[in-house]
């Protein structure tokens, strides 16, 4: 089978003239963001999975006290906040691409993307509020509190 070699992009032989002068660089920035956020997410997600599923007693250890113990530390608050924002923006942009690819009617595309943006916005705001307004020793609670809480 004869193989056709394709010159690699930006190798000088290939000149792209698509979208010349369309003005907005949004799509290029979104493309770049997918790659930059991807690299950071590998570290954040692998660390998250290792600490929550592999270390200690693994997934059996997860209860309120486990989460409270982590979020009592600013380190894990910042870690989880960065992971939440990067993963949500990355995932939302990825699903936006997929909707653009498959939904052919303008109305369908608009509807699906509106639902997507609302869902993502709600989850981002909710997740951020939970991380920042979290109280590891809520008054009146008795079960599963982390050990550093004052005795009820």
């Amino acid at each position: 089978m004869a193989t056709t070699t394709i010159p690699s992009p930006r190798s000088g032989k290939v000149k792209y003239s698509r979208n010349r002068g369309s003005g907005s660089s949004f799509e290029m920035l979104a493309w770049l963001f997918m790659r930059l956020s991807g690299v950071v997410l590998v570290v954040l997600i692998f660390g998250h999975l290792f600490v929550n599923l592999m270390a200690g007693d693994g997934i059996h250890a997860i209860d309120f006290g486990f989460v409270a113990g982590k979020w009592a530390s600013p380190f894990w608050q910042v870690w989880d906040l960065a992971m939440l924002w990067l993963a949500m923006l990355h995932g939302t942009n990825g699903v936006r691409t997929i909707i653009n690819d498959y939904a052919e009617r303008n109305g369908t595309r608009l509807t699906l993307k509106t639902v997507l943006y609302i869902a993502s916005f709600v989850i981002l705001v909710l997740g951020t509020l939970v991380i920042f307004t979290f109280d590891p020793c809520p008054a009146g609670a008795v079960t599963d509190l982390p050990s550093f809480c004052p005795a009820p």
Binding site: G65, P138, A141
Partner: peptide
């Protein structure tokens, strides 16, 4: 976790 420890657990 923001609702109650019992709900989460």
């Amino acid at each position: 976790v923001r609702v109650s420890p019992e709900a989460y657990t």
